[in-house]
Design a protein around this nucleic acid. Structure first.
Lengths: 165, 165
DNA sequence: CATCAATCGTTGCCAGTGCAACTAATAAGG
DNA sequence: CCTTATTAGTTGCACTGGCAACGATTGATG
């Protein structure tokens, strides 16, 4: 129906300008930060991205289920399941079946896991500080609010649980 | 040297609050948008994320090398190489050796590739509109500037070319 | 020129991950 | 209760994608 590059109007088809296309830019920025951060916990602690996320979640919340972690981090449940298995084998976390609902397992860091977390957390925060050092406190505050707003909206756009890492 | 949870100060080890930890939040947001966008070009056009990025780049720039696309999108060169092969087999792009430097190949969309791009671009832009509909024009402008600033800085933090997708 | 280094792109290999099917447990409905 | 639907988590399978080694070409050095 629309323009067919035939009539006199010569209406150019719209182009996506990647440098201004937000999904693309967000992915590039996320990749850059993710890769840089991964160097820290991969090289020094042998943690994959999903494993780090599990450790980070349990470090913050002490006890969570795998499902919580997956939903919170937009990861596939199988991804979390494997990360949990590997962390358990390494003795960094423990699983305890929830007696009120024996389908789910409550996860928590072991003392060794906590030790690693305590070593990692300052480095992660230091990395974040370096990353945002180009922003003023006000800019950082603004960015946080905008990201939050977009994330809430994006979650509503994709109701089903999906993931990556 | 620092706190050892021993003295009278009882200094709690620092914790990473994921809801405020920018790398995590950026990844969650990028995953959400990426997954939602991928539904469009995967289901309707059978394009993977790397393939879509190649098509999008060539759609915008007409001619680029694989290396350009990889560096621009923070993708591994092998990822781009395979996406290019698959797109070529499907007749969506053509490769032309650069006679000035026969190591590199100039990539461009075929008419069929351009047709797909012309069909995809409006949908991608419509998705972006929906995504940012929760932001005012000023907020969007602000966000763009902050993302740009952060991306430039993050690229300098990770000098070596790395990738994902 | 001859050699060595660097760069573009490809490919074999393997770790990682999404998907779908599965088990186990719980909830809902009759 | 018994049946059916739903949910938490696991796993086989296939595919994706990163890594590193490679071939081909170009550039840099002497």
């Amino acid at each position: 129906m629309a323009s067919h590059s035939a009539a006199k109007k010569e209406a150019l088809e719209p182009r996506v300008v990647l440098e201004r296309f937000l999904p693309y830019r967000l992915n590039v920025l996320a990749s850059l930060t993710s890769n840089a951060l991964a160097q820290i916990y991969a090289e020094r602690f042998g943690l994959s991205i999903p494993a780090w996320r599990v450790v980070a979640t349990l470090g913050q919340y002490d006890v969570r289920t795998a499902r919580d972690i997956a939903a919170h981090g937009v990861m596939h449940k199988s991804t979390v399941s494997r990360a949990v298995s590997s962390l358990e084998q390494r003795g960094l976390i423990v699983r305890r079946p929830n007696q009120d609902d024996r389908r789910e397992e409550l996860l928590a860091l072991t003392p060794e896991g906590r030790t690693i977390y305590d070593a990692l957390a300052p480095q992660a925060l230091a990395f974040e500080d370096r990353l945002v050092s180009v922003l003023s406190p006000e800019e950082l505050e603004t960015l946080g609010g905008l990201v939050e707003k977009l994330t809430l909206h994006a979650r509503s756009l994709a109701p089903e649980g999906e993931g990556e890492a």
